[in-house]
Design a protein around this nucleic acid. Structure first.
Lengths: 170, 170
DNA sequence: GCATATAAGTCAATAACACTGACTTATTTT
DNA sequence: AAAATAAGTCAGTGTTATTGACTTATATGC
């Protein structure tokens, strides 16, 4: 008796989304994310890197001076997984680490010019993808897109999203 | 000479999104997708399955009678990758294949009751996640969410998204 | 009927990305 | 001085994906 009878399943209240609307949302998320990341993956493959390298480069670029533990909290992977990626990026001169003067246990990371170049190459390509979708959907739709996605993020992690300099609307 | 001078970078035209708005969108996608899929991954781990198994179960459930090649086109993975996952699902009784009477080369797949149960267990949990975000964002925002995500999908694949029975608005 | 194309399945080898658990080193905090 | 924290490292493992070659069965075009 887990199933609802079909004649009461379709809710009149628009604040209670129907099952097929929720399925639709899940599929949109899957396909959009698949195509969005596929673009970056293709570029990174030319550099013998994968998605994990891109994520590290992106978030170090977006958070200059980030520590290893902060980056781990963003990526939600283990230290060992990050280490493999980070070692490569440091060895090949995309990222540098510097000891924090305030707390000498911490290693603050930033991109080298080479790292910045690669980050921008990928980010620009992905930006163009998003910019097109934004233009086609219209300004109001982009605000809704942000609101829903923000709501999908665990509350504890919402503060990690870097907000735009000036909000488009409140 | 790839960079724009900073004093012309901020566009007045709202249809040309700013760089920081696009970065914001990319981060929202990353965090939202991470937390959205994390939920399903956690459930599937109890069944010794991963994300790939879930995707297969989901799309077979959503497209009863789908062929192997159609499923490959949705997942955009190789036949070999799918085969490993599919073999497990068939061996353990979540999925069955039947030869298509019209074209006997094709194997049409559908979920068993056991498969349907698992699919619904995961889908319901994820639905609750989305339903909450939808409710919090409001009806208008959900429409924007859909419009932008749809625009992020490669045009050639947009027809693969199962639309809701009745569109919420046009 | 034969050649070609398509759908599915299979083999072997490989790589990217992730995991667990245990442990060391340096540094800061209590 | 003891405990906690940040980073790094070691060994072993698993999932998801890849490429390339190949087989089988069936359908289609000529």
């Amino acid at each position: 008796m887990d199933e609802q009878a079909p004649w009461v399943q379709q809710q009149a209240d628009p604040l209670v989304p129907r099952d097929d609307d929720l399925r639709h949302a899940m599929e949109l998320l899957f396909f959009a994310y698949r195509d969005f990341t596929g673009e970056a993956d293709a570029i990174l493959a030319d550099y013998d890197m994968g998605r994990a390298h891109h994520r590290a480069i992106y978030f170090i670029g977006a958070n200059t001076g980030i520590s290893v533990s902060e980056l781990l909290a963003i990526l939600k992977i283990t230290k060992q997984s990050l280490n493999r990626v980070l070692s490569t990026l440091i060895d090949e001169g995309y990222v540098v680490q510097e000891t924090d003067d305030g707390d000498r246990r911490r290693r603050l990371m930033h991109l080298t010019p080479k790292g910045r170049d690669l980050e921008q190459l990928v980010t620009r390509r992905q930006s163009a993808h998003i910019a097109r979708a934004y233009r086609e959907a219209g300004l109001e739709a982009t605000e809704g897109f942000r609101r829903v996605l923000f709501g999908l993020i665990n509350e504890a992690d919402r503060h990690r999203v870097t907000p735009p300099a000036t909000p488009v609307r409140t």
